[in-house]
Amino acid sequence: MDVFMKGLSKAKEGVVAAAEKTKQGVAEAAGKTKEGVLYVGSKTKEGVVHGVATVAEKTKEQVTNVGGAVVTGVTAVAQKTVEGAGSIAAATGFVKKDQLGKNEEGAPQEGILEDMPVDPDNEAYEMPSEEGYQDYEPEA
């Protein structure tokens, strides 16, 4: 019985440690998101679009440190934060509304985080759909 109880105690310690790591990862992701939003706020009209992409990228980098179902929630929060940063930029006159959601080359930025393969159960990952990809044929 002692062996059984000791095993359960060790398992509990492992769960607590994993929860603490997840909590730490979420806190880091939130900190990076805040950094990115402050970065966007300090940019001029020309830099705002690039700044919004930076927020998304920093958040995406930190999301990889967070495991399990938390990833889905962090990704949703990050996307809403990026959308909010863009709205703030438009409201303050840093950028025109028609410039939001495009990178410096004018290509749409939507789907940055949505296409990231995420499995809350950590069982399997699927690649994003290939609808947006084109076949590449090298020139002879």
Rank of each mutant, 00 (worst) to 15 (best):
A17V: 03
V16K: 01
V16T: 07
V15W: 10
D98N: 11
V66K: 04
T72P: 01
T81S: 03
L100E: 13
K12M: 06
G36E: 06
G132W: 14
K10D: 04
K12N: 01
H50K: 06
T75R: 07
G132V: 02
S87D: 07
S87N: 01
A76D: 07
V74C: 14
K60A: 07
G86L: 14
N65V: 11
E61Q: 15
E57A: 07
Q79T: 11
K58M: 14
G31W: 15
E20D: 06
K45L: 13
M127F: 13
D115N: 11
E123Q: 05
G67Y: 10
A17D: 05
G7E: 05
Q109L: 11
N122E: 02
D119L: 03
A56S: 08
L113T: 06
V118Q: 14
T72F: 00
G41W: 02
V26L: 09
T59F: 15
V40I: 01
Q134N: 04
K10A: 08
T33V: 13
I112M: 11
T72E: 15
T64L: 13
Q109M: 08
G41Y: 06
A90W: 15
V66W: 13
T33H: 05
K102T: 07
Q99E: 11
K21E: 01
S87A: 10
E61T: 08
A89M: 12
A76Q: 12
T44H: 03
A19S: 01
V49D: 01
V26D: 00
G67S: 12
L113K: 14
K97I: 15
K32Q: 07
K34F: 14
E114N: 07
E46D: 10
Y125Q: 07
E131D: 09
V26G: 01
T92P: 03
K21V: 09
K21S: 11
A76V: 10
G25A: 14
D2R: 05
D135M: 09
Y39A: 02
A91Q: 09
T81D: 04
G41C: 04
G47V: 03
N122G: 08
A85M: 14
L8C: 01
P120I: 13
K6I: 08
K96V: 15
D98S: 08
E110A: 10
K23Y: 08
G68N: 14
V48C: 07
Y39C: 05
A124D: 05
E104P: 08
V15M: 14
E126P: 14
E61D: 07
M5Q: 01
V66F: 13
E131P: 13
V52G: 01
Q99F: 11
V49H: 00
V55N: 01
Q24D: 06
A85I: 15
G93Q: 06
V71S: 03
P108N: 13
V70W: 04
L113D: 09
V49A: 15
Q62L: 08
V37F: 11
T22S: 09
V3S: 04
K12E: 00
A85D: 09
G86C: 14
G73S: 06
A29G: 04
Y125T: 12
A90L: 15
G93F: 10
V118E: 03
K12Y: 15
D135G: 04
A107S: 03
E13C: 08
T54I: 14
N65C: 12
K32T: 04
P120C: 05
K21C: 09
T44P: 01
K43N: 00
V3D: 03
F94L: 13
M127W: 08
T81K: 05
T33D: 00
P128N: 11
A107L: 10
A76Y: 12
K80L: 11
M116I: 08
E57W: 07
G36M: 11
T59D: 01
A91H: 10
A27S: 15
A27Q: 10
V77A: 10
A107H: 10
A17L: 05
V71H: 03
K43M: 04
A17M: 15
N65K: 07
E123D: 02
V15S: 00
T33S: 05
Y39N: 09
A30D: 00
Y125D: 10
G51L: 09
F94E: 07
F4D: 00
E137N: 09
V49Y: 09
A91L: 12
I88T: 06
A91N: 09
G132P: 07
E137W: 04
E123Y: 05
E105T: 12
P117E: 10
E139I: 13
A91C: 07
E105S: 09
T33I: 06
G47N: 13
G41A: 00
M127C: 03
A30T: 11
T72A: 13
V77W: 15
M116A: 15
A11R: 01
D115P: 12
A91M: 12
E130D: 05
E123H: 02
V16W: 05
A19P: 00
L100Y: 15
V3F: 14
V16R: 09
E131L: 05
Y125G: 09
E105V: 09
E139K: 12
V49W: 11
V49P: 03
E104L: 14
E57M: 08
E105W: 10
G51A: 04
L8H: 00
G73Q: 14
G93K: 04
L8I: 01
G86I: 11
G101V: 04
V70T: 04
E61M: 04
K97M: 01
G73W: 13
A29E: 01
E61Y: 08
G84P: 03
N103Y: 06
M127I: 11
V118N: 08
K34E: 14
K97W: 12
T64K: 10
A91F: 15
G14E: 05
L100S: 08
E114G: 12
V82Q: 04
E114A: 12
G84K: 08
V118F: 05
A89N: 04
E46T: 12
K12Q: 01
G68Y: 10
Y39F: 14
M5I: 00
V77N: 04
P138N: 13
E130Q: 11
Q99Y: 10
T59M: 08
S9R: 11
I88D: 06
Y125P: 15
P128S: 00
G73A: 04
G67R: 01
E35K: 07
G106T: 13
G93T: 02
V77S: 02
N122S: 10
K12I: 12
V26A: 03
K80Y: 05
P120N: 05
F94M: 09
G47P: 02
S87T: 00
E131K: 07
A69C: 03
K23D: 00
E126M: 11
K32Y: 10
P108L: 12
D135Q: 15
K60T: 06
E61N: 03
T54Q: 12
E13W: 09
E123M: 11
V82P: 04
S129P: 03
T92K: 12
E126G: 05
I88W: 05
L113W: 03
E126I: 04
P128Y: 12
G25K: 13
K80W: 14
K10Q: 06
N65R: 08
E28P: 01
M116Y: 09
A19F: 15
G73Y: 01
E105N: 13
E123K: 14
S87M: 10
S9K: 14
D115I: 04
A27I: 12
G67W: 08
P117W: 03
A17I: 11
Y125K: 10
V70S: 01
A107I: 06
D119E: 11
K97Q: 03
K45W: 14
Q79D: 05
Y133G: 09
